[in-house]
């Protein structure tokens, strides 16, 4: 019983985190057909800038709860800056090239940003623990949980709703859906794809940075955090279906619950459970659970 509760709560918390991290990735892929390896770096950038800003914030006498706003603001700012540099500066030059080539280009950007982060912030880990402790602890069935972790579930829900609303209830969102569905026709209909691409990449980048910023208080921000995140996020979006927003939700839930179950019941398999699930899903449904099968060109 206790274990079941723990699996559900841990799984949900982890799934929320995965969702926040992966949704930007899938959005960018859906619209631009770019599997952005540098998403891991955006996560790292978000985490570092948040940790750094929060360190400064708590040295002043400002109200501690304001740190949450600072956290989010820093992610937005760094995400926007990074997206401008990456998309306008580099990726723009490669539109129309092979998907795989662009993946490699983002891998190159990832390598560059890894060292960039090191140059700016050094190799010593950064802490931003204050917001994490601020919310305190709650007991569920005798198990202590950090409220900050539980709050992540809410944040993920809000982000999910915002993205859903943005895509389905706004004009730009509808244009985006049109581009996702068929880029060539959309261009022919006069949609400014360039602008949409820049915008989408910016939103995706901000979401990636936000993932990092929201995680920063619970961890010690150190070099290399981006590498781990990117493979996990890949797994989530592939399971859910590349480019599918509901897919990310389901993918994150599956991965989150499976991992939590593995940790509690069969710790030995924890290391590869995610890849096993990913392989299984791909074997049964190559396009992912929510992906659309590609129309074959003749």
């Amino acid at each position: 019983m206790l274990t079941t509760v723990a699996i559900l709560v841990d799984g949900l918390v982890y799934a929320s985190w995965l969702f926040i991290v992966a949704i930007g990735l899938t959005l960018i892929y859906g619209v631009m057909k770019i599997l952005n390896v540098a998403h891991g770096s955006l996560y790292a950038l978000g985490a570092y800038s948040a940790a750094w800003i929060i360190g400064i914030y708590f040295q002043s006498d400002l109200p501690p709860y304001g740190s949450f706003a600072v956290l989010i603001l820093s992610a937005v700012v760094i995400g926007l800056i990074a997206s401008l540099v990456i998309e306008r500066g580099v990726l723009r030059l490669m539109y129309g090239r092979d998907e795989i080539v662009i993946v490699l280009a983002t891998f190159a950007i990832f390598l560059i940003l890894e060292d960039f982060v090191k140059l700016v912030w050094g190799v010593d880990p950064y802490f931003a623990y204050q917001p994490y402790g601020l919310l305190g602890r709650v007991r569920l069935f005798g198990l202590g949980f950090a409220i900050y972790d539980l709050a992540l579930i809410g944040v993920a829900a809000v982000i999910g709703l915002l993205v859903w609303w943005g895509l389905n209830r706004t004009r730009i969102g509808k244009l985006l859906l049109a581009v996702i569905y068929d880029r060539e026709i959309s261009v022919a209909m006069g949609i400014n794809v360039n602008l949409l691409f820049a915008g989408t990449f910016a939103v995706g980048a901000v979401l990636g940075a936000l993932g990092g910023a929201l995680t920063a208080p619970a961890i010690s921000v150190s070099p290399g955090i981006g590498v781990e995140v990117i493979v996990l996020a890949f797994a989530v979006v592939v399971i859910g279906g590349l480019g599918s927003v509901p897919g990310v939700l389901i993918g994150a839930l599956i991965v989150g619950i499976c991992r939590a179950a593995a940790v509690h019941l069969l710790p030995e398999v924890e290391l590869f459970i995610i890849y096993a699930v990913m392989s299984l899903v791909l074997a049964l449904r190559p396009q992912g659970l929510f992906g659309r099968a590609a129309v074959r060109k003749i």
Binding site: V90, L104, A105, F107, A108, I109, F110, L111, I112, E114, D115, F116, K118, L119
Partner: peptide
Amino acid sequence: YTWQMLMGAVML
């Protein structure tokens, strides 16, 4: 300290 950056730049 920056060999990754160098390799990334060459790749790009």
